[in-house]
């Protein structure tokens, strides 16, 4: 029973951290261009794009 007194707050705190992290990511615009994010991994930063 005593373990519950700290395990439950710990569980809720960790879950809450996840929620806060998600909302932060949402606010900072990381979900605004999902297609672009998927493609950008293919761009090589070191080589300047040439055309």
């Amino acid at each position: 029973m005593t373990t519950l007194t700290y395990l439950i707050p710990v569980a809720l705190f960790l879950g809450g951290m996840g929620l806060v992290a998600f909302i932060w990511a949402l606010r900072s615009g990381q979900y605004e261009d999902l297609d672009g994010a998927a493609e950008r991994i293919l761009i090589e930063d070191d080589v300047a794009p040439r055309r």
Partner: peptide, 11 residues
């Protein structure tokens, strides 16, 4: 595509 993004942003 990714190449389009790179080309546009680069130019």
């Amino acid at each position: 595509c990714a190449a389009c993004i790179a080309t546009i942003e680069g130019s």
